[in-house]
């Protein structure tokens, strides 16, 4: 109890930060929408897009810097990467608009975008 009293300011700060973090998460959660397509950008270059309803397996990157992107069941994930940390592989699948998988060593950004593209392959879910 004494500890709590002498650390009142610390507790207030922690509570304030948690509330703020929670509010941020809630805001992103409420405003989320299922993805329409997946955009891929390497090293700030041109953007490639794939409808998220498609089944796609594609090797991204050049030379020894590659990541294998798989899109199926309305989700996108990286199944294989040539980087040492494998963070993008461990991250698993993304499906909501705004979610992304990032491979920092290869400067690769895979992002789920909202909205539907006029695409014959678009699936009704």
């Amino acid at each position: 109890m004494n500890w709590l009293k002498s650390h009142r300011n610390d507790m207030l700060l922690v509570a304030a930060l948690l509330v703020l973090g929670g509010a941020l998460a809630l805001f992103l959660y409420v405003t989320r929408e299922t993805g329409g397509y997946v955009s891929v950008q390497i090293d700030g270059g041109a953007v490639t897009e794939f409808p998220i309803g498609d089944n796609v397996r594609v090797v991204l990157g050049t030379g020894e810097q590659t990541n294998t992107l798989v899109i199926e069941d309305g989700t996108a994930r990286v199944v294989e990467a040539s980087c040492p940390d494998q963070i993008c592989v461990r991250q698993g699948a993304v499906r909501y608009a705004g979610e992304s998988i990032v491979c920092l060593p290869h400067r690769l950004v895979i992002t789920v975008e909202g909205g539907q593209r006029d695409d014959v392959d678009a699936t009704v879910r």
Binding site: L17, L18, G21, L24, A25, E99, V102, T111
Partner: peptide, 27 residues
């Protein structure tokens, strides 16, 4: 910095997660 270097604002999703984890680790 990651947002600036990768020229994308799409990393915002990480913010609440890292915000809370930073708080817990900080305690």
């Amino acid at each position: 910095v990651a947002m600036a270097l990768l020229e994308t604002s799409r990393l915002a999703w990480y913010l609440p997660v890292l915000w809370v984890s930073g708080t817990v680790a900080g305690v």
